[in-house]
Nucleic acid binder design. Structure first.
Lengths: 220, 220
DNA sequence: CCTCGTGCCTAATGGCCATTAGTACCATAA
DNA sequence: TTATGGTACTAATGGCCATTAGGCACGAGG
């Protein structure tokens, strides 16, 4: 499911400290606290003191483990996009477009349901990212959208899908799935698999019916 | 289309100053600048100095026209939700559910396309709202969702729609339309009417096909 | 026992911010 | 002309923040 990844923060540590004691739970504690607080209040409304308090430490002590507050945000946003990309590749098969769509949509929804804090931050805090990290994240996001565009274009070419605009369909489907992060609760009346299947169905239905658009013939 | 509304800020002014000179373009200038800056950088990353600069005035001068920075945010978010609610009622008819759906979805999409800054702020800055305004905005948002739920439930009861979960369908459809605010450009290759029709089609398709869900029988 | 590294602390530092106080300008209306 | 109301300005005020400096404790390894 979720690909095993080493967070950007951890990578940086190993680069600095190649004795690699690797006991550093603090680093991931900080990431975890940042995840919760940034998601709840936003990046600018969260202070280093807040993050410190969440892990039982004073604000300045955090600098024993990282270089700046911004670093936490970058770590979260970059790894989130990387996870989404890896999730897509992992879920994608070489079957029929309709089946591929169901698989990647289910994965898209699962990821958003299981990582609501991450994707919340990913979608809200792009203006809080400083360059060049913002560029990087936007490129990863484009890459993700590109994979979806290709898949849907394939299905269009093979006649499996029927829609007037690939671009609009991609936006609609992605956004639909992103929304799951805002309401899914593990103890809800629908299981995650049911929800993923439901969204896969909805995405498939979005793509397969013939449409009568006012003026027809539309860009890709 | 967009209902004529008096902003909360204006109302407050009239309440304080019932001589009602009403020439106060400054007040709406401030609102306009806040709209742009909050949408671009976020509420906490925008200073009163920034807003002042945008309208050619120093930060403290703004306090001749309002009581606090928070007031600008409240004004934006409350009027946005009120506009969406009014837009729904305005667009809703007493026809067939499928036709009603097309109308309100087109309006939902149009509003999001034409007011991207407003809805961006509306969706991102809820944590920046102080009580009791947050409660108020969340209630308005629930009210909006409730109208959609009723409509879709009607269509389900009449047999026009066929979906396993009204709640999930509402979330999916609303979120889909919200996304338009993030990519629509007036000079794009699709006209707003085409886009609205496209989304209305997609929403209709989402609701009308029969689904086979793994386990069936799901809550409302 | 000593030493060294690690990671915590408190106490700056420098900056920015929202908001308030006090003052000056200017137009309009008496 | 003189008063008045409105709006702008500059100069506090008080607070918070990210980050840095410097020092202290403690555990491991000699």
């Amino acid at each position: 499911m979720t690909p095993v990844r080493v967070s950007v923060l951890e990578e940086r540590q190993n680069a600095d400290d190649n004795s690699s004691t690797m006991k550093d739970g603090r680093r991931s504690d900080i990431r975890e606290a940042g995840l919760t607080l940034f998601a709840e209040r936003g990046y600018h409304a969260t202070s280093m003191g807040d993050i410190g308090r969440a892990i039982g430490v004073k604000g300045p002590s955090l600098y024993n483990h990282l270089k700046s507050k911004q670093e936490i945000l970058i770590d979260i946003m970059v790894t989130t996009m990387q996870d989404l990309l890896a999730g897509f590749d992992n879920a994608d098969s070489n079957g029929e477009p309709a089946e591929r769509l169901r698989e990647v949509m289910a994965e898209h929804v699962r990821y958003h349901a299981l990582h609501p804090r991450d994707v919340r931050i990913g979608n809200r805090e792009i203006p809080s990212l400083e360059e060049p990290a913002r560029e990087l994240v936007l490129n990863l996001r484009n890459e993700y959208e590109g994979k979806w565009r290709e898949l849907i274009q394939d299905g269009l070419d093979s006649g499996d899908f029927s829609i007037p605009s690939v671009r609009v369909a991609v936006y609609a489907i992605l956004e639909m799935g992103i929304g799951v992060a805002q309401w899914y609760r593990p103890d809800g009346s629908l299981s995650l698999d049911q929800i993923a299947a439901l969204y896969a169905d909805m995405a498939a239905r979005l793509l397969s019916a013939k449409v009568t658009v006012a003026d027809s013939t539309i860009e890709n």
